[in-house]
């Protein structure tokens, strides 16, 4: 006796749901909204630490990072509790980091990033607080030198006038 092959009979609503789920997997990634996924990425970042001449550093102050040749920020945010900015350059070239404080202090640091993503040359800004007083001493030296030159100039002019 021939027995007919068994068939699964599903109601139309279940079939519709299955088709919908299948189509949603095929949709572009942008349409898969509302889920924020994350992964841990192993890599190196550029870290710039800002400080004031004294023991303090700018804390939670806003900064902007600009990619080479771009006027639109690549990254914005606030420095961390140690006065640091960290970012991962995605191309070689001259990167800029700008920091502002509400009371009008600020710094612009230019970083030359090579193809390996490491900082080759840093320009702008000024070294860490360690050499601040050396620079102040140098400024005092230049100041004394400028006034010394003024004294010599005056004496020569006086001598030329009396000769």
């Amino acid at each position: 006796m021939h027995r007919p092959a068994s068939r699964i009979h599903a109601p139309p609503s279940v079939i519709g749901a299955l088709v919908g789920v299948s189509l949603s997997v095929l949709l572009p990634a942008g349409a898969n909204a509302h889920a924020v996924l994350h992964e841990l990425v192993d890599g190196e970042a550029v870290i710039v630490r800002f400080s004031f001449p004294g023991p303090e550093q700018p804390v939670f102050e806003p900064y902007e990072v600009f990619a080479p040749g771009s006027e639109t920020p690549f990254q914005t945010g606030r420095v961390n509790a140690r006065g640091e900015v960290s970012f991962r350059p995605d191309r070689p070239g001259a990167w800029r980091v700008r920091l502002f404080t509400a009371d009008g202090h600020g710094a612009i640091v230019e970083l030359e990033v090579d193809a390996a993503g490491t900082v080759a040359v840093a320009q702008g800004g000024h070294g860490h607080g360690h050499d601040y007083w050396l620079r102040v001493l140098a400024a005092l030296g230049y100041l004394c030198g400028a006034f010394g030159l003024l004294v010599i100039w005056r004496r020569r002019r006086t001598h030329a006038g009396t000769a």
Binding site: V136, C144, F147, L150
Partner: peptide, 14 residues
Amino acid sequence: MLPRLAVFTALALL
């Protein structure tokens, strides 16, 4: 005046 000005300018710098 010149040395005095130098000293007080240095003080202002400091």
